[in-house]
């Protein structure tokens, strides 16, 4: 599955960024900052005490949509995956969502005509932001701790159904929330691209759209990691737990 554009351990980290600058925030999530000099990916990972193979798989799944070694990735510890997902959450909360909000506010403040229409889009975004933040914090409060409790055996002698209830976790609700947060982001993009009233600042809106495209790609990769890797890993853990009981 290794294409010529795949990130490999012997590449220089600087080359990786030249190859795809959109990987910067992904690399940051591993605690890596710029100024790598001529260090290779392997060296940078070693310096930061990272799991090299996991780093490469994450970076490559973001870089190349066709790269997705499911079976291999399902072999990583659930807690390693969760730690990474949490870093992404922080990035969405700290950077992605507020930046987009700032751009939308600017779009409204620079409006020269149908400002009511733009305010409607702003309202839509604000509600979306709230929904996504609720979803993310729900995962942090319920879903991830549920997985951790099973992995660490901190289950207090309870059965799976009780635990799921206590941690408020259900596969269906999780899937529905994922579907909704992606669908609304896609809707927002389409509303802007196809139906935006003409009295808006072109530059501000273009920047907003670039940002939303990047956000959508990031969020989709993030949710794919949860849905296609973490959830099957969790199912295995649940099965083992049942077998032990």
């Amino acid at each position: 599955m290794m294409g010529k554009n795949t990130v490999t351990s012997d590449m220089k980290m600087a080359e990786v960024i030249h190859m795809n600058y959109l990987l910067l925030p992904v690399i940051n999530r591993f605690g890596i900052k710029l100024g790598f000099g001529d260090k290779t990916v392997e060296k940078v990972c070693r310096d930061h005490g990272l799991n090299l193979s996991f780093f490469l798989d994450i970076v490559n799944t973001y870089h190349d949509p066709s790269y997705f070694p499911r079976d291999k990735m399902r072999g990583y510890p659930a807690t390693l995956i969760i730690d990474y997902l949490l870093q992404s959450h922080e990035y969405y909360n700290r950077t992605m969502l507020p930046e987009a909000e700032g751009m939308i506010e600017k779009l409204v403040s620079t409006c020269s005509g149908h400002c009511e229409d733009l305010r409607l889009i702003e309202d839509f975004y604000r509600k979306y932001k709230e929904e996504l933040q609720n979803h993310l914090s729900g995962e942090e409060i319920h879903f991830f701790p549920y997985v951790r409790a099973l992995v660490e055996g901190k289950t207090g002698g309870k059965d799976l159904e009780t635990l799921r209830r206590e941690y408020n976790f259900s596969y269906q609700a999780h899937a529905d929330e994922h579907e909704s947060v992606i669908a609304k982001l896609v809707d927002l993009k389409n509303i802007l691209i196809k139906y935006l009233p003409p009295d808006y600042d072109v530059e501000v809106c273009n920047n907003l759209l670039y940002w939303l495209f990047i956000f959508e790609d990031d969020l989709k990769d993030h949710e794919r990691l949860e849905d296609v890797i973490l959830l099957p890993v969790l199912e295995n853990i649940e099965q083992q737990f049942r077998n032990q009981q």
Binding site: D117, I121, S180, L188, N190, I191, Y195
Partner: peptide, 22 residues
Amino acid sequence: KLGIKTVSGLTVYAVLNGLIPK
């Protein structure tokens, strides 16, 4: 046809296009 899937997205579209008042 619209490329809009969610109820809240469709609502924005409907208001923008004058199908319902805000």
